[in-house]
Design a protein around this nucleic acid. Structure first.
Lengths: 116, 116
DNA sequence: CAGTATCCCGTATGATACTG
DNA sequence: CAGTATCATACGGGATACTG
C-alpha cells in the first residue's frame, strides 16, 4: 500500500478533535495525574497524590486538579470534617481517556530502545 | 525504588515509557507536525509545512524539525541545488506513532461535546 | 528557498510561608 | 489535611531582519 492512500481517521488538518484533546491533557503533570488515578488505588487524597507525583509543588498540583475537575476528567469529593479530607478520582470521562494514555505508554515502552 | 504496587498495563508510576513518549511529542507543534506528514502529501517542504501550520514562526518550526529529526521521527532530505529544496517526511518510527495520535484525535472528536 | 540571528515576552511552574 | 498567597524564574515560543 502506497503512502498517498492513507487517510487520517480523524478530521485533522483543521484539527478540531486533536487540538481539543491536547487542550485537556497538556501540562507538565496532567496525564501523569490521570494515570495516577488508575490502578489499585484509584481514589487518592491530595497529599498522597502529591507524594506519588514526586516533585510537583502544592501550587501546581492544586491548580492542575482544578483544571482537570473543571474539564470533567476527575471528581473531587470533599468530606466536611476536621482535619479536611478530599479524595480525587477519575470521572467516567476521565476513564475514557485512559486507553489513550495506555497507548502512549506502551509506545514509549516498545520504542524507547529504537536505534536512531 | 518505590515499593508501591500498581496494575497499570504499563509500568507507569516509575513512568518510563510514558515519560519517554511525552518527551518526544511534547511541544506546541510536534504532534501537529507529525500529523501534517500523513495523508495525501506525506512529503513536505519547509515553507509548505509552515503554511500548513499557520502561525508557527520560522524559528520554532526550524527548531522543532531538528528535534523531531534527532529523535528519529522524521527524515530530512536535502537536495543540493539552488535555490535549496528540503523535504520532510515521517520515518518508520514516526509512522508508528501515528496510531497514537489518531487515537487522541478520535477521543477529542467523540468527547468534545460531552456534558461537563 | 530554507533557514539563522537577535531580542523580547508570557505563561507555566517552582519555593516558601501561611491559613481554615 | 488541604490547600492559598506571594514572589521569583525558566523556557518555550513570537517577531523581525538577515543570509547562503
Amino acid at each position: 500500500m502506497s503512502e498517498e492512500t492513507f487517510d487520517s481517521p480523524c478530521e485533522l488538518r483543521g484539527d478540531t478533535g486533536f487540538a481539543y484533546t491536547l487542550s485537556l491533557v497538556s501540562g507538565k503533570y496532567k496525564m501523569i495525574i490521570l494515570y495516577s488515578l488508575t490502578g489499585a488505588t484509584p481514589v487518592v487524597r491530595f497529599n498522597e497524590l502529591k507524594r506519588r507525583l514526586g516533585k510537583i509543588s502544592f501550587r501546581t498540583l492544586s491548580l492542575t486538579l482544578k483544571e482537570l475537575e473543571s474539564d470533567g476528567l476527575i471528581i473531587r469529593n470533599e468530606y466536611p470534617q476536621i482535619p479536611p479530607k478530599v479524595e480525587y478520582s477519575l470521572s467516567a470521562r476521565g476513564q475514557s481517556l485512559i486507553p489513550v494514555l495506555d497507548m502512549m505508554c506502551e509506545w514509549g515502552t516498545v520504542h524507547s530502545n529504537d536505534p536512531i
